[in-house]
Amino acid sequence: MKKFLQKIPEQVKRLSILLVVVVIVFIIATSLLTPKDFGLIGHFRASSVQNNANKKMQYAGQETCSDCHEDMWKTKNAGYHKNLSCEVCHGPSLNHVNEPDQFKPVKPKGRTFCPVCHEYNPSRPTGFPQIVTASHNPRKICITCHNPHNPTPPQTPKDCSACHAEISNAKSVSSHMDIPCTKCHKTSAKHRLSPREFLPTKPTQREFCGQCHSKEAKSDESIPRINMTTHEPRYVCWQCHYPHLPEAQ
């Protein structure tokens, strides 16, 4: 053994000592600095999961509101806003739950908040109630006519255009402008109150358009005619022509 040690060149001995010192320092530093809970459930500090869970909440959740405001809650849940959480409009209110007198939730007023959802925007899904604020009862505050907890329109809308503004706009510049909506869509009176449950009818057959547009039709001469038997018989009219704006390509 001693002979073997003597055989090792002097340089190597000196370097080995240095290497051993570096390695030992590294090992000691690692064991001192590594957090005790690191790697218990994965390559991270286990306590960090708890830290993430400990963050403070701001939104109480609508079930919490119902504990005190049961009447309001019931009204809301019977109307069109039944899917809305209270805090959509009233803002984060956990503080209010904890100290009801000190923190009051916001109550949006005026004409700016409701249009956040209800202003007309062509990107919004069709059927979602939308208005154009500029022309919809200008200067009137939304909640004077609509109860936000039960937002049925104060009067049932008279015109179809009140809700179907986009279609009505298109139709008003088309050659179909003089045809009333009800000529093509049979609409029960109940549709005005429960629009999704009582849907208006839609034409189903080519012959419906043919009443005016077929060669044999007894309509005004200026109306364009086609031969119903030879003109693309495999399709129904509205697969190619948009009935509310037939001029469109």
Binding site: P9, E10, Q11, R14, L15, L18
Partner: peptide, 15 residues
Amino acid sequence: SLFSKDISEKAIHFD
């Protein structure tokens, strides 16, 4: 030099 002193022929060859 880590206080090394060996500059024999053998050590230099090793280097």
